[in-house]
Each structure stands twice: as structure tokens, then as C-alpha cells.
Amino acid sequence: MEEIALYLFKSGICLSLCYGIYYIFLKNETFFKFNRYFLLAGIFLSIIIPLFNFTYTVQVTDPIFNKNSVLNPAKTTPAILSYLQFGLLVYFVVTFGFIFNYLLSLRKARQLVSQHYFEVVDRCKIIYTNQFNTSFSIFNYIFLDTDIASSVVEQRLILEHEKAHVIQKHWIDMQIAQLVRIFQWFNPIAWLYLKAVRQNHEYLADQTVLQAGNSGATYRATLLNHSLQSRVFNFSSSFAGDNPFSRIDMMKKRTSRETKKWSILLLVPCFSLIFFAFATPDYQTSKNKVNPGTAVKAKAHLPIYVVNGVETSSIENLDTNEIKSINVFKGESAIARFGEKGKYGVIAVTLKTKP
């Protein structure tokens, strides 16, 4: 349970970092193909990176650290665990709801396709229908509204726009971004990320139409004429389904400098920070190794023990009930009473009865 929650949390942070870099440095630039690959890379990085666990080594010594408390940290208390289980239960219920709605949309799209005849033009399956008040594309199908009041030129421009979506396979990006939004519905950035992917697709399609030699003024006028259209499916590409004014502004912008692409290098310190923040310590115990010379030196600095005037190596085995008094001598007083061997201190014990 904890692993699932931690993975979702780290994945959400990774996705947010990628979106932040896109929003600040790339969103208003004109290299749309590069932006498309960057947005896709951000999705895959947010999926893959949280799968790796990074550790750093911490050396500890046995006498100081308790093996049970340090090497085996205490597990989450039952109360906290119950809150976590409840939160994950809510998460899975809502997620399954989004998945069910997504599958229903796919089924509806399939039924819609099966109800119409289509003609194949440049690998695109074109369906002419008056069932909707908009033109849009789903996968490799293009639905053109036959009732819309527009000129032949406008209809051709709309068709070229939707063909660009199909030929460039924008539907693949849309499905991936849709799935990310489904599994990260709790993360507002996931919803903004889907919107960014869709908007960049519109920029790409607009760029394709204009690079084909069509009049920019005529194309922008066509976009404004159809700006009130609404999207039929969340995963469809609609000619004027997104903000047409931002698209018109982007059409009139000068080509961005290639050097601005280097802003993606900011991902390196950002992800390094994530690795550091979520790295777990790997405690390794080590025993103090003392060579013989050091051991002798350490022993020479120990005080001596004297029991009833007789020097002894230890007083651990003495019966405390038999001890009458304990005197500690240090410095000059110890040397004066016990000689040079008492220079590191003397602990003198007097027993009630002589041994």
C-alpha cells in the first residue's frame, strides 16, 4: 500500500516538473514538433523514474546504534496505515470510474464510425455527416460537417487541418495523455498536461496548413468563423475546439531561437533533487578495528583498582554489600600515595571484611 502511494506521489512530482519547464520556457515558442517530443518524454519519465529506488550508504557502529531501531525502522502505525488504505480505496474507486467513462467513450466512437460510410484520402478516412455542428478527427477518421455554412476554400482548409492531425498521428499522444490523467486525476497538473498536449497538436496542424502555401489571413479568418464549435470527444481533435486566439497569436509569431531548447537541461538538476529527496539510507554496521599497539596504549591510560591495599585488574565481581567505602585518587595525590603507576588515577575499595 505504501509503495503504491509513494509511487503515485513521486510520479505526480515528476510530471509537474516537466510541465513547469514546458510552461515557463517552451509553451510560447514556435518549435512545436520539439515541444511534442518533450511533452511525451515528460510523461514517460514520470512513469519510469519513480520505479527506481535510490539509496545512500550510512556507516554506523554496533555499540551506538540499536539494530532493531536503525536497521529495521519502525513500521507505520496501524492508525496511519488505516488512513492510507482508505485514501487508496477512494483513489481506486474514482480511477475505475474514469476508466469506465473512457471505455464508454471509445465504444461510442466505434459505434459512430460503424454508422457512416467513409472515403480514403491520403491515408485518412473521411466521413461526411450533418450529425454534429463541428468538424473533428478521431484516430484516423475525419468527420466533416456538411451543414456548416462555409465556402469551398474554408472547407478545404478545415480538411487539411484535420488531415494533419491524422497523418502526424496525434491521437497516439492524446491516448497516452488521457491515460495519465485518468491515473493521476488527483493531480491538477495532469489535467493541464493533457490540455497542453492538445493545444500543441493544434499548433502543429496550423503550422502544417500554412507551410502548404495557404493564405495566413484566410486561414485565421476561417478559424475565427468556426470558433464557437465544441469538442465531441475528449480525445478528439477539433478544428476550433481550443482557444482560437492563442493559435492566431502563435501563427503570427516569429520563429523562436533554437537556443531556447536548451532549457530542457533544467530537468537534470530537477530530477537530481528528486533522487536526493526520496533516497533512502542504507545503514551498514562496522566494528572498530584496533591494532595491538593502540590497544596497549589505551590500556595504559586506564586507572588502577586497589582492593584493601592490593592492586587488582577489576572490581566487577565484588559483592556490593561487602564494600565499606570507595575512594578515587587523581593527579598528584594518586602518585604520592601509590607511586608512578597511579598517575592515571586510582580507585581504592575498602571491604567490610578482609578477603
Rank of each mutant, 00 (worst) to 15 (best):
T222V: 10
I126S: 02
C14K: 00
K343M: 11
K169D: 05
Q229S: 07
P78T: 11
S114Y: 11
Y305L: 14
F276M: 15
L106M: 09
F98E: 09
D319T: 12
D145A: 07
F245T: 11
L266N: 00
K33V: 15
P78W: 11
V306P: 01
I142F: 04
V268C: 02
V346F: 09
Y219T: 02
R247D: 01
S256C: 11
A177N: 02
C14F: 00
T77N: 15
F183E: 02
Y193F: 04
I315D: 13
L210S: 02
L40Q: 08
K10R: 05
I21C: 01
D242F: 09
F278G: 01
S16Y: 02
N200Y: 01
S238Y: 07
S238C: 12
I347Q: 11
D319S: 12
H201R: 07
I80Y: 12
R107C: 10
L210D: 02
F31Y: 13
G97K: 13
Q111M: 14
I64T: 13
V120A: 09
K27R: 05
C124H: 03
F96G: 15
E154W: 04
W262F: 12
I335Y: 06
D62P: 07
S11V: 02
I99P: 07
I323L: 08
S238H: 07
N243C: 04
L15V: 01
K253N: 07
Q111I: 12
L318Q: 08
T30C: 05
H226N: 14
S333G: 11
Y22E: 00
H165C: 00
